[in-house]
Amino acid sequence: MAELIGSILVLLGAIFHFSAGLGMLRMPDAYTRMQAGTKASTLGNTLILLGLGFYHPEWSLKLLIIICFVLMTNPVSSHALARAAHMIRIPMTRRTTVDALRATRQRRRSGK
């Protein structure tokens, strides 16, 4: 039973990873690609590691630590990448209508 649950979790994680890869190919610009990759792969990693935890209960503490580490690092790193991309003005897709970061920066500049 535990093995079945573990397998299903690993399969779900693989599906999320697949969607991350698909997003990389299909999304229109750097930012949307980045968010597809980050979100889907964070959840995919978590699910796969949880599934492994069902297979090997004796590993669960280490797996939990790895999950926490991935949950902390993945968003921070992709945030830094996206911010750097925004700083060097990598263009967005035309369909993007809201750019909160640029708006904040302009407001701050005019406030000075």
Binding site: M72, V76, H79, A80
Partner: peptide
């Protein structure tokens, strides 16, 4: 030099010891 964002700064505070 561009300042890094608050998220990266506090993330580094937590992550560097780890």
């Amino acid at each position: 030099a561009r300042l890094s964002s608050e998220i990266v700064q506090s993330g580094a505070q937590i992550l560097a010891p780890l």
